[in-house]
Design a protein around this nucleic acid. Structure first.
Length: 453
RNA sequence: GUGAUCAUAGCUCAGUUGGUUAGAGCGUCGGAUUGUGGUUCCGAAGGUCGCGGGUUCGAGCCCCGUUUUUCACCCCA
């Protein structure tokens, strides 16, 4: 006998866990719908050519590849195997891979269906993605993303709406969060001003760690990437800018006065903050210059959401990316989007015990099974309850009553109906309330009113 | 990819310096109670001590390898 197991970094979800997860998905879906987003789905597998090279060198390594069916060695030469030319071998043995995120497949979707899509296109997508990463806290090899993106619109109104969506979702979930916002153009401007415009990626990756590892370590990392000492020094006051959002933006205008790109970024953020102020959004929205986000395709605004009451990484992120579909031959289409990290939100809700009570229970009424005659008497009653929206079941076998009651108890069924010979003769039934333990003999026709409260 | 760490019943975990027949709680099943669950009492089933090799008279315990768990780094949600 072999012990069953599941692959590293994957999870089963129990009935109870699914109830909780669906609570999150449904909340996010409902808010997306309210803002006019439409749902799409794409396949779990994409052609490897669609995925490769879109997530950088690291990303390519983390792609799950799907072995060709049939004779997958047909194109492979002995020499390639002996020399372990892994790159060549995988392209010959695998032509498909599991999706790594929802954004790239979406870009592919837009390009393939551009004839049927009217722009701007607002889509949302809630599906699992896979990464061959080493699992650790809050990190899995299979996890869900809940993306919403607008493509084909440069308007900053989209950014404002996304902030509203974030605010709305977390208000509904009762999680206290802080929305951090920054702009890639400002980061580019900073890189220009300190005289290291080519090192923009290294700089953003380093300062993104500011909150986690502190100023000193960031400086060390910057130095190790070959950033000039003078440049690092110019960077210090910028990283530690104090004050409210407007004060920060004013200070930045001075600092970035020589950078056209930087000033454009400031203008964009000012627009967004202006509307957020008018809309009275209750969540704190903070300009955080150390927010960079690893993904390199962002070109404008970038967002990140942190839970205030739980120590966990970001639970939502997003941003603006110009030229999303360029790699697939459809230039000049800009997109902006966000992604809720459902698995981390799940952990937050669990730790804070914020799930509503009714997320757990399923069956409302269980009918005890005493045999054929009694079943015939009960089935129409089940039908009637179900027609009235009450989830109802009858125990499938005429097992011992003790066992049937135990089943109801385990499943937390609040009402049990007992019908035996006595009840049938009187055209009645016994209704037991499993919470109080009380039971009473009632008229068949009164059942619905008793259990529908 | 780098560095740690864990693995004993379905689950959570004990198990002394290497010493006879590996234990507990929970859960499951049966009974006390053949028409009454959640409480109580009695009883039972359930183990290749992750896997493979080694040291030893003797290994759950020591050594090596491997897989798995968890965690940190890289990167990321």
């Amino acid at each position: 006998m072999q012990k069953p197991s599941i692959p590293k970094g994957t999870r089963d979800f129990s009935a109870e866990e699914m109830a909780k997860r669906n609570y999150i998905f449904n909340t996010v879906k409902e808010v997306y719908r309210l803002y006019g987003f439409q749902q799409i789905e794409t396949p779990a597998m994409e052609n490897l050519s669609t995925l490769m090279g879109k997530y950088g060198e690291e990303g390519d390594k983390l792609l799950f590849k799907v072995l060709n069916s049939g004779d997958f060695l047909s194109d492979v030469s002995l020499q390639e195997v002996e020399q372990k030319l892994l790159g060549k071998l995988t392209t010959k043995m695998c032509e498909k891979g599991l999706r790594y995120d929802l954004t790239v497949p979406f870009a592919r979707f837009v390009v393939m269906h551009r004839d049927k899509i009217s722009f701007p296109f607002k889509r949302y997508q809630i599906q699992p993605v896979w990464r061959a990463d080493r699992p650790q806290k809050g990190r899995y090899r299979e996890f869900y993303q809940c993306d919403a993106d607008v493509v084909g619109s440069d308007s900053l109104l989209n950014e404002v709406e996304l902030v509203q969506i974030i605010d709305e979702v977390f208000r509904r979930l009762k999680i206290n969060v802080c929305i951090k916002i920054n702009n890639r153009k400002i980061l580019s401007g900073i890189a220009e001003v300190i005289g290291e415009p080519d090192k923009i990626t290294d700089i953003t990756v380093a300062i993104d760690k500011f909150e986690k590892i502190g100023l000193e370590k960031v400086n060390e990392e910057l130095a190790s990437k070959g950033i000039a000492v003078a440049a690092i020094e110019t960077l210090q006051p910028i990283m530690q800018l104090k004050g409210n959002n407007n004060e920060k933006l004013e200070a930045l205008k001075e600092i970035l006065s020589t950078s056209q790109t930087g000033l454009k970024g400031i203008e964009e953020l000012s627009f967004i903050f202006k509307y957020i102020k008018q809309l009275n959004i209750s969540t704190t929205v903070e300009l955080d210059l150390t927010l960079a986000r690893g993904l390199n395709y962002y070109t404008g605004a970038i967002f990140e959401v942190k839970a205030l009451d739980v120590e966990i990484g970001s639970i939502t992120g997003g941003g603006r990316y110009d030229n999303l579909t360029g790699v697939f031959g459809m230039p000049d289409v800009s997109g902006v989007g966000i992604s809720f990290g459902a698995d981390r939100i799940y952990d937050v809700l669990n730790q804070l015990e914020l799930y509503p009570e009714d997320a757990a229970c399923s069956t409302q009424v269980l009918f005890v099974n005493f045999g054929e005659n009694e079943t015939g008497y009960c089935l129409p009653l089940l039908q009637q309850l179900r027609a009235n929206g009450i989830s109802t079941e009858i125990y499938p076998e005429a097992a011992k009553l003790k066992q049937q009651m135990g089943y109801a108890d385990n499943k937390k069924v609040p009402y049990v109906v007992i019908v035996g010979e006595n009840e049938m003769n009187e055209n009645k039934l016994t209704l037991k309330n499993m919470i109080t333990g009380e039971q009473q003999l009632i008229d068949k026709s009164d059942l619905l009113s008793f259990v529908s409260k």
